[in-house]
Design a protein around this nucleic acid. Sequence first.
RNA 1: UGCGGGAUAGAGCAGUCUGGUUAGCUCGUCAGGUUCAUAACCUGAAGGUCGUAGGUUCGAAUCCUGCUCCCGCAACCA
Length: 507
Amino acid sequence: MYSDYVKSDFRSFKSDKQFITAPIYYVNGAPHLGHLYTSIAVDILHRFMSIFGESYFSIGTDEHGQKVEQSAQKNNCEVQKYVDDMYAPFHQLMKVANIQYDSFIRTSSEKHKSNVLHFWNKLLDSGDTYEDSYKGWYATRDEQFYAEDEVEDRYIKNSKRKVAKISGSPVEWMEEKCTFFKLSKYNDELLDYYKKNKSLIGPNARYNEVIGMLEARIPDLAITRSRFSWGISCGNGQVIYVWVDALSNYITAMGDNVDYWINDMIHIIGKDILKFHAIYWPALLLSTGYPMPKRIYAHGWWTVNEDKMSKSLGNVVEPFDLIEKYGIDPVRYCIMREMSFGQDGDFSHDRMKNRVNTELVNVIGNLVQRVLAFTWKEFGETLTINDLEDQDLELLKNWDECLENSFEAMKKQQIHVYLEEVRKVIVKTNQYIDFTAPWKCESEEKKRILAVGIECIKRLALIIYPVMPGSSEKILEMIGCDCKISNWFVPLQQKALDKPSGLFNRI
RNA sequence: UGCGGGAUAGAGCAGUCUGGUUAGCUCGUCAGGUUCAUAACCUGAAGGUCGUAGGUUCGAAUCCUGCUCCCGCAACCA
C-alpha cells in the first residue's frame, strides 16, 4: 500500500535559513546574457531552498561611479535621469525572467545612501581608517590606483603611454587626499579564516585564487575619491569608493532585519568580482563587527559560439530577444544545463534548439503528455495512488532519491547536479511506463500503473518548480495540487482532467 | 616574461578537492523493439591506453614534479 510506503519512508527535508545575494548590476550598459544567467541561477537557488525553509533573495543595480557620470555627460543627460533610464531594462528583465527577489536595491536610492552613511560611520568608528594623501598612478577607466611596479610604458598609436599592466588602461600621476582603510591589518586574519574554512569559497579553483592573493599580501585600500562627484558624499568634496558603496547593498537589502539574516549570507557572484567579495567585503565586515559570509560562490563566464561575448564582435546575446524567442522556462532550463555552475560555458542557438527538442519536448514534455493523455482518455480524471507492486515502489524510491540528491547538491550550489538528477529520474519513469506497458493491461492494473505515473508527474512538477516555475504550475494546476514540497508524499485527490496540451513546443 | 583557466570516445561535458568495482552522461551514428505520447519512447552496439613523461601508492583521470598544446588578460562585462 502507498500509505505503508509513506509511513516507512517519509523523510523530512529542512534547509538552513539563507540570505542569498545576486550581484548588483552596473548600469553602464544594457543587460546581456550574463546578467540573465546570474539572476536565474540565484533565483533557482532561492526558490529551491524556499521550498524547504527560509530564504531571502536580494539583487539590484549599481548606479554610482565615474564611468556612469561620464556616460551621462556624454549623453548630455542629468546623471540621476541617466541612471533611471539605464536601470529600467534591468528591472524589466527581472519581470520577464520571472526572478522572484525579495529586495531590489538601487544604489542611488535614498534608502541605500543613508544606509551606506551609517555603515561608513561605523567604519570610521572602528579605528581602521586614516587620512593620507595618495600619490600614485590612477587609471580612470579602472577607477583605481596602481603602484609603481604595476605600471609600464607601452606604445599606443605610436605614442608612449604609461598603462596599468593588468588592465592596459592608461594611467596618470595623481596626488589626492583621501581616506584609507587598513585592509592589510586583516590580511592574516582572513588567510587564517579561509584556511580553516575551505568550503567557504567555491569552486575550489576560486578558493585557491583567494589564498594566492592573500599570500601575496594585500595593501591598504583607498576608500574615498575626489575626482568626480557621482557617488555618496562623505564630506570634504569626497565620495565613498564605489565598491564600499556597492558591497553595502547587501546590508541595505536586509533592512531592519540585519541581525536576523546576516549570519546566513551567501554570495553568488561572477568570477570577476571575487576579490571584492572574498577580500574587501569580509574585511569591511570584520572591521564593522558583522559576521562573515557563510559562502561565496563564483560562477563562470559565457562565450558565444566559442567567441568571447563582446559588443565589438556584435555577438552579445540579448536577453529579451532570447526569452521572446524560446520562452522563459526553456531559457531558464537550458542556460543552466549548458554549463556546470562555476565553470565557463558556451552559448549557441544550435545547442539551445537541440536541448529544447530533446530534453524538454522529448523527455520531460513527452512523459507528462503520455501519462496525462492516456489517463484522460481512459478515466477522465486523476487517479489516487493506492496499491503498489515492487516495481512501483522502486520507481517512487528513485524519485525520493532524486529529491534527496538534488537537495544535497543545491546546498552546495551544484545546480547542474540537481538538473541532471531530475533528468535521470525522468528517464527512469519513461522506462517504467515502457516496461509496464499499461496500454496492454487489464483495467485494474492499468489504473494502478497510471496512478503511479500521475504520482510521478506530480513529483516532477514539484521538483522542477525552482527551475521552470511556469511549467511546474501549469502541471500542478492540471492535476490539482498545490506547489508545496509537503505534497511530495501526499496522494493526489481525484480531479476531473481536461484534455492535456503540450508543455513545450518543438522548435 | 607574468597571472588565470583548460586538455576525458565524432561533438559537448561530468567525475579530480575527500585516490579504490568493467571511466560515466548527453547529442550524433548504427541495429532492434514498441505505439500510451508533440515520428516522441524503450533496448542493444560501435567508439576513450582520461594531453605527455616520470614519481608516490597494493591501487591514480583523481595526489606530486617536469614538459607540450589551447584559451583569456583594449573596451563593455555576470
